[in-house]
């Protein structure tokens, strides 16, 4: 069973729709027991970090997420919340990855949010076994995770190279939206759902 974590973030429907296009049934839930017993857990989301963390903490979901052993995929805000902290609302996050999430600085002609299709570079790990270097995926975000030892794909915008993806043990994060990234995104989701 695939559990999609329900919390106060937007865009969860697009992940549910993508799973259904892949022929997978998923349960949208904030029930710690269902999440703990799922085969795979997806943590989607578009939203604001501090209010999302408050929601997760209040419902005891933070502790549950940190303790999970099954393959876990955080998407966009989900990935950022898996990091140590975020400049957005000066928020302490889940701490699965040691990174601090920082904001893109505007200026020099760079527009924020980083919105649109950008390339994945230096990809590694099982999620990307069907992905080629320089494939395009869809990003929408104003904060980013710097490169770290857990970076499993990189991209570049506003003069910064940063983590498009993070992976550590069973935990994976994608800053981009695989559910909105056409065929490329579907291949990655399929790897997560079928190969991990």
């Amino acid at each position: 069973m695939i559990a999609v974590i329900k919390y106060n973030a937007g865009n969860i429907l697009s992940v549910m729709n993508a799973l259904s296009r892949l022929g997978k049934e998923a349960v949208l839930t904030d029930d710690p027991e269902i999440i703990s017993s799922a085969d795979k857990v997806i943590f989607p989301g578009v939203g604001e970090a501090s209010s999302a963390m408050r929601y997760l903490n209040e419902r005891g979901l933070s502790t549950v997420i940190r303790s999970l052993k099954q393959p876990f995929l955080g998407i966009c805000l989900g990935m950022q919340l898996m990091c140590a902290s975020s400049e957005e609302g000066d928020t302490e996050c889940l701490g699965i990855f040691p990174s601090e999430i920082i904001q893109f600085r505007r200026g020099a002609g760079w527009k924020v949010p980083h919105m649109g299709w950008n390339t994945l570079e230096n990809i590694s790990g099982p999620l990307y076994k069907d992905t080629k270097e320089m494939e395009y995926v869809y990003f929408v975000h104003s904060y980013y995770a710097p490169l770290s030892e857990y970076t499993s794909a990189e991209t570049e915008y506003a003069g910064v190279r940063f983590s498009a993806s993070l992976s550590k043990d069973n935990f994976h994060g994608m800053q981009f939206h695989p559910e909105k990234s056409g065929d490329a995104g579907e291949r990655m989701l399929r790897c997560f759902l079928e190969d991990l």
């Binding site: 729709n17 993508a18 296009r21 869809y138 929408v140 939206h177 909105k180 990234s181 056409g182």
Partner: peptide, 8 residues
Amino acid sequence: VARRISIP
């Protein structure tokens, strides 16, 4: 549309 297409 949201069910069928995988681009924004």
